[in-house]
Design a protein around this nucleic acid. Sequence first.
DNA 1: TCTGGGGTCCTAGGACCC
DNA 2: TCTGGGGTCCTAGGACCC
Length: 451
Amino acid sequence: MRNDPSVLHVDLDAFFAAVEQRDKPSLRGKPVVVGGIGVRGVVSTASYEARRYGVRSAMSTAEARSRCPHAAYLGPRFEVYRETSRAVMAEMRALSPLVEPLSVDEAFVDLSASGLTGLTVDDVRAIADDLKAAIRKVSGGLTASVGAGTSKLIAKIASELDKPDGVVVVPAGTEAEFLAPMQVTVIPGVGPATAQRLSMAGVRTVADLQQLDEDELIRQVGSAHGTSLHRLAVAADDRPVVSDRETKSVSVEDTFETDLIDRALLTAIGDRMAHRVAERLQKAQLSGRTVTVKTRMHDFTTHTRSSTLAGPTDDARVIARVARRLLEESEIGGGIRLLGVGVSSLADWIQDDLFTEDEHAANPIEVVELPSRRRDQRGFHPGQDVEHSGHGRGWVWGSGRGRVTVRFETADTPPGPVRTFSVDDPALTKVQHTGADADGGPETDHNGSGD
DNA sequence: TCTGGGGTCCTAGGACCC
DNA sequence: TCTGGGGTCCTAGGACCC
């Protein structure tokens, strides 16, 4: 797609295990497995020493233990990994402003965004070697594998080919022949289910895929997947490297050591999950309209139930109430092994420019959780119509932390400003409707329902 | 010895509106 | 009275990724 291999894919080798070996010298050179330690744990990362015994990511820890009993089994330390990740990502950003993290241990870097053009294979290899050295230095000795090519697809696949601590640069113009002999499963997005369907159509390698008619491919795997696969098979990939991808959902889930049947206990756990989701939303200055409860049954079948609010919220009590109702409607049957609570349909909670210093002073952020009755007294909730003596009619866009955010617009007026007030602001009043659908949507009255 | 937790994207059907 | 599509939103489930 480009005429030089200016897209890098950087992948830290056995990241979690490597960090543990870095911090505990006694583990160096030995098999290390990081992941869930409990009876239902799975492996996140196995060091290369442990991989020799057949230990793999996503394998149950129990199976890993039977394959490699003498390995060190460690629970993850996410804060430490995040910290190391930040330092590594900073090295990439020093190389180019256009860096797209895919996870804590992986990112694309677009060299063209740093003004470098006409890069040869040797140029890119030298840049990759320098970057690896910088990463090693800043991370306390971690190694990375780097792939480079004219697109994300090629860079990503190339980084897998010489792990660990490798560099593979695919020359421009050789992409289709580079891919042709490989299994279709090297293409990101082709997992077991797609591979199975393709194999029934006689497709096992990318070369097979290159021969397959697009319409036939779409019949096999669906419209979106088929269309993109048809292009990726011939390395036609013009997806840009994007540095700031927006969060689409925030969720918390937990698998229990034994299946749970007690609804009161599940309700209490769900409440706590709702609070954790709300905390993370608030930290990210996000709010969302759709609350989802996820349950996984003893037989591993998974169900979700969701409900969409009239307006976005980051209020733990609102999320908890909706989650409670959804959980009440969920079957528990012979017990559930996993419960989750999530929020999606996210909106920016409050943009920085909405707050002047004066507004900060006038609407102090409540750090302490307010007594619930105090907030319930006014009962503002997303979607509710309100009136402000100074700004006129609007509706509640979000609420939480002792504040109410109002969009000043109605069905009859054009969009106005978005402003945030204290819940106690006497200038702000609820608009009482006389019609049947007082507050619009079905989810609009739990804040004042007093349960 | 059964299968984590955090996400993203897609599909499909029904409701509802024009 | 019957018969239409198209578009959007919501819900549920599934595939996939690290």
